[in-house]
């Protein structure tokens, strides 16, 4: 996803002269093409993320469209007050990209895990939160958010994420997508981990459990129409799946939505997310997903347990 980001932001910046790219000393060589054609609009702000966030707000208040790029914890929790005050309170037109989200940098340890970014940013008023699942969706989100007013946070993976969407999907800010139909269980997910959900769904069809898979794509704004439509389908269970902590993420969001709209009684919901604990014994993303039962076999196991009870 990060290479799609580099490519797409370069082509957007060619058309839109207001777009400025700010990096926190990462993305070695990735932005060479951007720097070649608009060196004055690329600034390596160094390893000083709080400063980078506030200066971006300043740029936005003077008419530019800054895009901030660094590793997710450093572009979110590291500078949370700068996001709250500079970006959100000022309705600044800036775009925050968190790369290597969730457990993408699993083996680098808790300093590089981002399992609370959605929770904390969701609690701040006035900031969009987008969680594209593949490069194509990221492309649409990038283009749309640079046309809207106010701040946007886009949470992306690292590299090599598979393509998920086809031409038939309805991509865009505030748009969820049903990727696979099913009648027993609905998995709602976000981000590249959708591939684990799709695999689990395929595996379970062999065991006569019919699992639908949907991606939410946009945490804020939320595709409420889509959710209401899903309610009418009377699934036995809803599952939320996220590479994020249990507290305050997608699962919490769906629960809150259901409560506020009086759907709670119609909904049997199970949240698959990372328990609120630091991960000290490390491995790569696949390993950690497996240990935490966020991988396809863990998802399968959870669904089977639900359905057989």
């Amino acid at each position: 996803m990060r290479s799609l980001f580099a490519k797409e932001i370069t082509s957007i910046a060619k058309k839109n002269k207001k777009v400025v790219l700010l990096s926190g000393d990462i993305g070695n060589r990735m932005f060479d093409k951007f720097k070649d054609f608009a060196p004055e609009r690329f600034i390596n702000c160094g390893i000083a993320e709080a400063n980078m966030m506030s200066l971006a707000s300043g740029m936005a208040l003077c008419g530019l469209r800054p895009v901030i790029y660094t590793i997710t914890p450093f572009t979110t929790t590291r500078c949370l007050e700068q996001i709250k005050i500079g970006a959100a309170y000022h309705d600044a037109n800036l775009l925050i990209i968190g790369t290597g989200s969730g457990l993408s940098y699993s083996e680098l340890g808790p300093t590089h895990h981002s399992l609370e970014d959605i929770a904390v940013i969701r609690s701040i008023p006035g900031i969009r939160i987008l969680t594209p699942s593949d490069p194509e969706e990221l492309k649409v989100h990038l283009n749309e958010s640079l046309l809207l007013n106010g701040p946007t946070y886009i949470r992306i993976g690292k590299k090599g994420e598979p393509n998920i969407f086809s031409k038939n999907n309805n991509l865009g800010i505030g748009k969820a997508n049903l990727l696979k139909k099913g009648s027993d269980v609905l998995i709602i997910t976000m981000g590249p981990i959708v591939s684990e959900a799709l695999k689990a769904s395929n595996d379970l069809s062999g065991e006569n459990i019919d699992v639908a898979v949907a991606t939410i794509g946009s945490i804020k704004p939320l595709d409420k129409k889509f959710l209401i439509e899903q309610i009418t389908r009377n699934y036995k269970y809803w599952i939320t799946l996220e590479e994020h902590g249990l507290v305050g993420g997608l699962g919490s969001l769906i629960l809150e939505w259901a409560l506020e709209n009086s759907y709670l009684s119609k909904l049997k919901l199970k949240r698959i997310a990372v328990e609120s604990k630091f991960i000290n014994r490390l491995g790569n993303q696949d390993y950690t997903r497996k240990i935490l039962k966020l991988d396809s076999s863990g998802i399968k196991e959870t669904i089977k347990k639900l359905c057989l009870n």
Partner: peptide, 27 residues
Amino acid sequence: GKPGSVFHEHPPKPGYIAGIEAATGSL
């Protein structure tokens, strides 16, 4: 570097590797 190990790119918090006083990695 092995899966499940505490020896990876950054120091973990104290208590996992003798001699490590603080988890760093976020500069």
